[in-house]
């Protein structure tokens, strides 16, 4: 990592950490919480789909499972409303990962184009079950133990827990990228059969990566449920969630560390701001679609790669210019 990129990472982290201190308006801190939740999810999604090239469009299953773990456990265990409920966040992640194991075992038997479709199908199985089953509260949803924190700082603890999830997801992605496991996932992305013939246990690697990625997404779902206090099956199992985090990762730069974070930061804060200002979801759909199409047309590799290429090309050009100047100089001297 160069000095510049390290500085950008540190600055970004400091800015995120100071945000609720500087911007104290609860409405904006709430936007921050949602944005961070999406950043954690997009980063985690990228850790599997970006590295292996297996685009999963059923992440809402993990998000919903995490959310329902939080809701059902806190309700049925008669938990005292308050900070103790945060302990259920990792539990939500764990349950999501466990649920992902059989799903992955089925879905990962097929090749990548079919995988996309089968994850969508499995998503609908979960969504329909959640909407029709009794224990999810059906369409009227479930109400979690009411946390009676003061309205002016209610959002702040959630903000920092969400930031913790983002940091966790980012560090995990970075570690995975450096491990042999990460290298194997990248090899699978390029040529799965060849990787198999070089001793990579492709099935285990894919399944592990898939389940691991669901952990953070499940945690994010659990945090979301606790944050909003009431959940509905149709909102936690939302097809738009599936595609949103994929779009965020593509927008920022698939397979890169910073890309999904940046993509989520841009898209989610934009969406939240839009809903706050216009309360018109159709307009959001249009802008969201249009923005994504524009990005595809003008920077198909995503924002991060686009910028990185510009920077390296400029550096190369400057270097070439210096070299040229030196030769001219040398020539004139001779």
């Amino acid at each position: 990592m160069g000095h510049w990129s390290r500085a950008v990472w540190v600055l970004g982290l400091v800015a995120l950490a100071l945000f609720p201190v500087v911007v104290t308006s609860p409405a904006y801190v709430a936007i921050g919480v949602f944005t961070l939740i999406y950043m954690a999810c997009a980063s985690s999604w990228n850790m599997f789909s970006g590295y292996t090239g297996y685009i999963a469009l059923g992440s809402a299953v993990s998000y919903g499972v995490g959310a329902y773990t939080m809701a059902l456990v806190s309700i049925h265990a008669n938990m005292a409303p308050g900070a103790a409920m945060f302990w259920l966040v990792p539990l939500g992640g764990l349950v999501a990962s466990l649920v992902a194991l059989p799903i992955g075992a089925i879905a990962l038997r097929v090749r990548r184009h079919t995988f996309v479709v089968i994850t969508i199908a499995i998503f609908f199985v979960f969504q329909l079950t959640a909407i029709n089953a009794g224990f999810t509260g059906s369409t009227s949803g479930l109400i979690l133990p009411f946390i009676s924190w003061n309205e002016s700082y209610y959002n702040v603890p959630f903000y920092y827990v969400a930031l913790g999830l983002v940091i966790f997801a980012t560090i995990l992605s970075a570690l995975v990228r450096r491990s042999r496991f990460g290298l194997q996932m990248l090899a699978i992305r390029d040529d799965e059969d060849r990787a198999l013939g070089l001793g990579v246990r492709t099935t285990s690697v894919k399944l592990t990566g898939f389940a691991l990625a669901q952990f953070t997404i499940g945690m994010a779902g659990a945090l979301y449920a606790m944050f909003v206090g009431q959940i509905f099956p149709q909102f936690v199992f939302d097809p738009l969630f599936d595609v949103s985090i994929a779009l965020m990762a593509f927008l920022g730069g698939l397979g890169t560390l910073a890309g999904p974070l940046l993509g989520a930061l841009i898209l989610e804060s934009f969406q939240q701001w839009l809903t706050l200002t216009f309360s018109n979801s159709s307009l959001y759909l249009i802008l969201f679609g249009a923005l994504f199409l524009l990005v595809i047309l003008f920077m198909p590799q995503g924002i991060v790669v686009f910028i990185r290429d510009r920077v390296t090309r400029r550096a190369a050009r400057e270097k070439a210019a210096v070299a040229a100047a030196e030769t001219t100089l040398a020539g004139s001297r001779a």
């Binding site: 450096r178 491990s179 042999r180 496991f181 290298l183 194997q184 090899a187 990787a195 070089l198 001793g199 990579v200 246990r201 285990s204 690697v205 592990t208």
Partner: peptide, 16 residues
């Protein structure tokens, strides 16, 4: 990618 013929997949998670 090809350096280890028989390394377990779990090991891959924990090593660089």
């Amino acid at each position: 990618v090809a350096t280890q013929r028989r390394e377990g997949w779990l090991r891959g998670l924990t090593r660089s």
